[in-house]
Structure formats: structure tokens, C-alpha cells
């Protein structure tokens, strides 16, 4: 089983379109698909803006995990319905096998815990496609690979989008440092020179606290930080640490996704600027491969109290600007066709 996630930097950045093109790619290759999502997707009209949405079509034979009423009302005519025992906000999540190609609304497990429970039902030889929601990315820690969707719905400023992509790319690209599982945060350096810090680095003051602990904990060679990390708080820690004579210190985080949940993404630019200066090594214990980024020029624009209209930034220049400023491959599927996406998916299969 390999899990491919579709995460966005915001709602309406094109996750569903990318998912749809991906489903088609794997269906053409006759892969066993297991499809679920962490939100609610595939409905006719957006629940917040009221604007039309792309639909999710699944091929015959695909296994889908979604709330039972949605499977029952799908024209894919699901059979072999099985209860996963997981409940979401719109009903109990069941698995079903599509007996015909058809449209489905995906409403799956919302948390990483529930997602793991549902994915336990995925056959070993299946490709799991995990649809995201809004800018939610936390449950994507279970994914082997990730395609990120961003675009004008996040910001109409192509330069800002490019900077964010670069920051995310760098975070996702942090090296995996294998080692023992971190123990509880005792405040003491263990025999192997590791200082475990639990509770993350996301509140003001936690950076300073980490620096104090480091000072009072002997000479650890590795600091394992579990939990959410905010770049601003990490910068605070770097500023407080007495790093002279600690040039061999390695800081290990849980997972790059833990670094993308709190604070302004662009602050990671500063962090990555400060790390070499501090002489630190920074890595993660586990990671998810970022395959590429899809760019969407679409953005809903409010045209009066609670009313939205669809609008677009110029697609060519938007994509061109972003592509020219980023290192990770980017594409606009609607503008360029699915070629680049297919190359990422080939890589995923390899």
C-alpha cells in the first residue's frame, strides 16, 4: 500500500481537479484504488461560497471510504459495504467497492488517528489516494507522497506564492535522521546524548525554555523535539541558545508537516537562513515526499454580503512567475494538461 495525499494551501486551490486527474491516470493503468478524504469533497456546489465545484468520479472497482449516506446515494452503486467503525460529522464511514464508474462525494476520517484506522482496511497492493480539505495537512503525515495545490485562492501575489512554495519545499526536504524513538521530555540528556523535548515549539516562551533546558542538560548531541513547531518560536530558541561550542548539535523534529501548522510559512526563510550560521544540523524522524505543486489561477471573490463570484488571475503569467521562482516542479493542469502530473505519478509508482 502506498499513500498519495492531496493537500492544499487553502480552500479552492485545485485539490479536487488534481485528484480527479490522478484517479484517471491510475484507472487507465488498472491500479487498485482506495480513495478517501479528510474533509467533504465532490459536492455540486461549495458549502461556503455556493459556487460550482469539480466532481469526483471513481472508476469501477475502486474502493471508497466515505460516510454511508454518501455511498448509498452515489451513482457508482457501491457494493460490499463494510463499516470501518469510524464516525465522522456526516455519518459512519463505510467502505464500498464501485460496481460502475460514477460520481461520489467523499467524507472520510478527519483526524490522523481515524485516518489510520480507515487505512488499515486498504489492501496491500492498493494505491491510496487521500483527498485533503482547506489548508489542512496534519493527517497527511500518513502519506508516503504528497502533491500540493496552491494558487490565487491562497494569494493573488505570485511572488508570495512562490516564496511559500519554496519554504514548504525546504521544510519537506529536511533530511530524515534515523534514530531511537524519542522518550518523554525529562529535561535530562540520556546516555546516548539525546535531549527529548515534548510539547512542541509553538507558544511564545517555549523557544527560551528550550534554550534554558539545553544549557542545563549537559552537552546533548541531539535534541529531539516532538510536536508542532512554529518558525517564529524556533527562531526565538536559536536566538536564546548559547551555540558557541555546540557546533555538533543536531535538532530532530517529528515530521516536516509538524513545521507547517503554526505561524507564517515565510518565517521559515529566516530559519533556513539562520541554521547554517548557527552551525546546526536539522532533520526529521520521518517524512513525506513532495512530488510537485499544482497552481490554480481560480479564486472566489466576494461580490456583496455572502455572495461569491468565480474570478481568475491571468493563468499564464501566474504560473510562469511561480515556476520561474521555485525549484520544485509546478504545473497548472488546466493550462498545461496533465503531462507534468503524470510524470510525478510515474515517479510515485517507481
Amino acid at each position: 500500500m502506498r499513500v498519495l495525499g492531496f493537500a492544499g494551501t487553502a480552500k479552492n486551490t485545485g485539490k479536487t481537479t488534481t485528484l480527479e486527474a490522478t484517479i484517471k491516470f491510475f484507472a487507465d493503468k488498472h491500479k487498485n484504488l482506495f480513495i478517501t478524504g479528510i474533509g467533504y469533497d465532490g459536492e455540486d456546489f461549495d458549502n461556503l461560497t455556493g459556487l460550482p465545484k469539480p466532481r469526483v468520479f471513481v472508476p469501477e472497482g475502486a474502493v471508497v471510504a466515505s460516510a454511508l449516506p454518501l455511498l448509498e446515494s452515489s451513482d457508482a452503486k457501491f457494493t460490499d459495504l463494510r463499516d470501518t467503525g469510524v464516525r465522522c460529522a456526516v455519518g459512519r464511514i463505510f467502505l464500498g467497492t464501485a460496481t460502475a464508474p460514477g460520481r461520489v462525494v467523499l467524507a472520510g476520517p478527519a483526524s490522523a488517528k481515524d485516518l489510520s484506522a480507515v487505512l488499515a482496511f486498504a489492501p496491500d497492493d492498493s494505491v491510496v489516494l487521500l483527498d485533503g480539505a482547506f489548508s489542512r495537512i496534519s493527517p497527511m503525515v500518513v502519506a508516503d507522497s504528497l502533491i500540493l495545490a496552491t494558487g490565487a485562492a491562497r494569494s493573488r501575489d505570485s511572488h508570495r506564492i512562490a516564496r511559500e512554495i519554496n519554504a514548504i519545499h525546504k521544510v519537506m526536504d529536511l533530511p530524515v535522521i534515523y534514530g531511537p524513538s524519542p522518550g518523554p521530555g525529562t529535561g535530562q540528556t540520556s546516555g546516548d546524548g539525546t535531549l527529548n523535548v515534548s510539547g512542541g515549539l509553538f507558544l511564545p516562551g517555549q523557544g527560551q525554555e528550550l534554550a534554558w533546558r539545553l544549557d542545563g542538560a549537559g552537552k546533548p548531541s541531539t535534541v529531539c523535539v516532538t510536536g508542532i513547531v512554529n518558525p517564529q518560536v524556533f527562531l526565538e530558541a536559536l536566538g536564546e541558545m548559547d551555540l558557541d561550542g555546540r557546533r555538533d548539535l543536531t535538532v530532530v523534529f517529528d515530521h516536516p508537516i509538524m513545521l507547517l501548522l503554526s505561524g507564517d510559512l515565510l518565517r521559515w526563510e529566516e530559519v533556513f537562513g539562520a541554521i547554517p550560521e548557527a552551525g546546526l544540523a536539522v532533520g526529521v524522524r520521518a517524512s513525506t515526499e513532495l512530488l510537485g505543486v499544482t497552481i490554480n489561477p481560480y479564486t472566489p471573490t466576494e461580490s456583496g454580503a455572502g455572495k461569491y463570484i468565480a474570478s481568475y488571475v491571468p493563468p499564464e503569467s501566474f504560473l510562469g512567475d511561480i515556476d520561474g521562482l521555485t525549484q520544485i516542479p509546478c504545473t497548472d493542469i488546466m493550462l498545461e494538461g496533465p503531462g507534468k502530473l503524470h510524470s510525478w505519478l510515474e515517479k510515485f509508482l517507481d
Partner: peptide
């Protein structure tokens, strides 16, 4: 629409913090 992203972020934070 704007607030929804904040709520989504809150959900993510709770998830990542192990609250869920």
C-alpha cells in the same frame, strides 16, 4: 469564508498536538 481557514488550522493544530 475567511474564518473557515482559521478553523481548519485549529483542527490541524489539535490533531498534530495529539488532542484527537
Amino acid at each position: 469564508y475567511g474564518i473557515s481557514e482559521l478553523l481548519a488550522k485549529f483542527v490541524d493544530l489539535c490533531d498534530a498536538a495529539g488532542l484527537r
